[in-house]
Amino acid sequence: MSTTTRTDRPSVVLVAQSSRWGEKLIHFWLGFCALSSVIITVGIVLALFTPLPEFFSRVDFRAFFSADPWAPALATPSFGVWNIVVGTLNVTMYALIVAIPAGLGAAIYLSEFAGRRARKVLKPVLEVLEGVPTVAYGIFAFIFVTPLLRDNWPTWLPGDLGDAPGIFSSGAAGLVLGVMIIPTVASISEDAMSAVPRSLREGAYGLGSTRMQVATKVVVPAALSGIVAGFVLGVSRAIGETMVVLLAAGASPNLTLMPNESVLPMTAFIGRTATGDISVGTDVYFTIFAVGALLFTMTFLMNMISIALVRRFREQYE
């Protein structure tokens, strides 16, 4: 019986029946897709950085990184980039003052306190908020928040802080920018906190912790790397965001950290200048690239720092 089956069996074929061209083509195409993002990134970096030698042949390096006035388009131009760097930092700072407590609070609520039904509604709403076009936030800042701030400014504050802001203010831009990045901070932090194993929470409850203690002393520290990543992504968005600051922060490159003055963040400068009529080859033209390269370097450093931070926390906690 068994011998007949053995002889009946057809000869075993292990050689490929076809050369499977389709599969090879797909393999190639997918590899190309993956590679193209790298190529494009490199291209952008090159486009930003290649005009730099020309710029610095026209503008002194030290004059650029200085607190000289920022007036690249004037007849006697001046290129103190520090003014617009501080403009960016100013707006980002107010954005973070809003976004970090609110975002972390929302994440803690969603992950530790909200019932299943509340989470089912709130989490998708939060994610939809991330998709609202930034220009809508810009209009919101300009039409709604700016007048609100102007009419309700605490004028009893001492010194210059007591002056009500004008049509443009870093405070209004920062506030709205902060609201804009709350979903990013909250959503990423919530993901990190939900990933903390149930067993850790149970251990903490088993020792008589309150909900708040479980959240702040166990879940947040355990999820810290993810939470920091959320903060950093939020900061990167705030630094790189253009529409809100273009519409609400103004165009005066004031070197200030006050919330009630107009500032010119780096992105707003690029946005305004690049949409105006500038001729190729002028000083202003090259300034756009210099500011863009500086902006890129800043966010790049931010991301490196965040990666290092995340890695360090991870070593410590896992």
Binding site: L200, E202, G203, G206, G208, T210, Q213, V218, A222
Partner: peptide, 25 residues
């Protein structure tokens, strides 16, 4: 108090793990 099936130390130092309960309570 309770001890669980899988060891579930907190992501903290050995000292802080033991001190956790007295601190929160």
């Amino acid at each position: 108090g309770m001890v669980f099936q899988k060891p579930n130390p907190f992501p903290k130092s050995i000292f802080d793990n033991v001190a956790y309960g007295p601190r929160v309570t």
